[in-house]
Amino acid sequence: MSDILTMCKIVLSSLRKKTACQMYPVKPAKFYKNSRGHIALEPAKCILCTLCAKRCPTGAIEVDRTKGVWQINRFKCILCNECVHSCRPVALSMENQYAAPSANKDIETHNVEIKKPAAKPVAPGESAENS
């Protein structure tokens, strides 16, 4: 019952085949539409509602409404997609390409223009600073 020819056949036939590896980085990595690579922000669309920061399970996102700063710590982000789902104005998106490696654990900062809320009343302290 036992034999060694089965494996020999596989090994010999794979000699004729092309390499099974993707040959990255000579060839670019292949991604799918769903591939989760990194979170990208479109600052023009962000209304600084802080929902993404509240929903993020790892606390990777920090939003400062008064200064108009949106920050992400890519080393904390686990690419769960929660922030993308919670962002109503669709300012966040999941990009396919993985985030670039980094030697320092930097926090990525985006400046977002503070938009005046249309009709909503604003807390007194905040409105003084915003106007």
Binding site: I10, Y32, N34, R36
Partner: peptide, 28 residues
């Protein structure tokens, strides 16, 4: 060599995972 060939086959399964869920081993 058998180890390499097994993992070559597994890679095809991981591709299906990436296509359907977005992750290769952690799917969320």
């Amino acid at each position: 060599s058998l180890f390499m060939h097994s993992w070559r086959v597994r890679e095809m399964v991981l591709d299906i995972f990436e296509e359907t869920t977005g992750g290769r081993v952690i799917f969320d």
